[in-house]
């Protein structure tokens, strides 16, 4: 099923930050963690490990986490991966970028598994926000997006419709309509992205709630 395989490869490309963070929190140095992350994806796709899972049941997040755990617990594969010294490049990954995503200062007490889930939540939400940003940019509304983003994404300052109205020069009611549309579109994008990683419609909500609970527990 080459189509399914390439779709999977695309998914893996998107979800490398949680994997890298997991490997780092397991105690590997940045350069080893980079090699291991690249090699894990190579191993995962080459051995068709995903073919052993039931495509109709289960979440991709859990499956990927279990797979990387198995990968790291297998001494031979792990050592080989380090010895190869990163001759395989699955995703374009430099140390600075990778370390920024790992973000050692954040969630210092979290286990590797918990950090994986936190980074997963961040990857999903930030990715959807990025897609939305691109859509708005294509429509020539990048500035509007930047001005109203806080209504979706929170921030250190509480957003207010009056301030937004003053900043954008739009009537308050129009701002509210734009915010409503942005929220609606964001919801669709993030749900579409999550849909690729679950196996039943009701699991989209389940996954969102689960990620909320991960954040709540980490707080």
């Amino acid at each position: 099923m080459p189509e399914a395989a390439s779709a999977l490869a695309r998914l893996c490309e998107l979800y490398w930050p949680p994997i890298y963070s997991f490997v780092r929190r397991r105690g590997y140095a940045p350069s080893d963690a980079q090699d291991l992350t690249q090699s894990f994806f190579a191993f995962f796709l080459r051995t068709k490990a995903y073919a052993r899972s039931d495509p109709l049941h289960g979440k991709f997040r859990s499956f990927l986490l279990a797979s990387v755990k198995n990968f790291l617990s297998d001494n031979w594969d792990r050592d080989q991966a380090i010895k190869r010294g990163g001759d395989y490049q699955f995703v374009s990954l430099d140390q600075e970028t990778a370390e920024a995503f790992y973000d050692a200062a954040s969630a210092p007490d979290s286990t590797a598994e918990r950090l994986f889930e936190l980074r997963w939540a961040k990857t999903v939400t930030a990715g959807a926000l990025n897609s939305l940003c691109k859509e708005l940019q294509a429509e020539g509304k990048l500035k509007l997006f930047e001005q109203l983003k806080a209504f979706l994404a929170g921030g250190s300052v509480l957003p207010s419709y009056d301030d937004a109205s003053a900043r954008t020069g739009l009537p308050r009611a129009t701002v509210k309509t734009h915010v409503h549309r942005l929220r609606q579109r964001y919801r669709e994008i993030v749900r579409r992205d999550i849909a690729r990683t679950v196996s039943a419609p009701h699991e989209i909500d389940e996954e969102l709630r689960y990620l909320c609970s991960v954040l709540a527990n980490a707080a």
Partner: peptide, 11 residues
């Protein structure tokens, strides 16, 4: 950005 707010927006 606040990941939590984004998740709730999605929900």
């Amino acid at each position: 950005v606040c990941v939590n707010c984004l998740l709730h927006t999605a929900l």
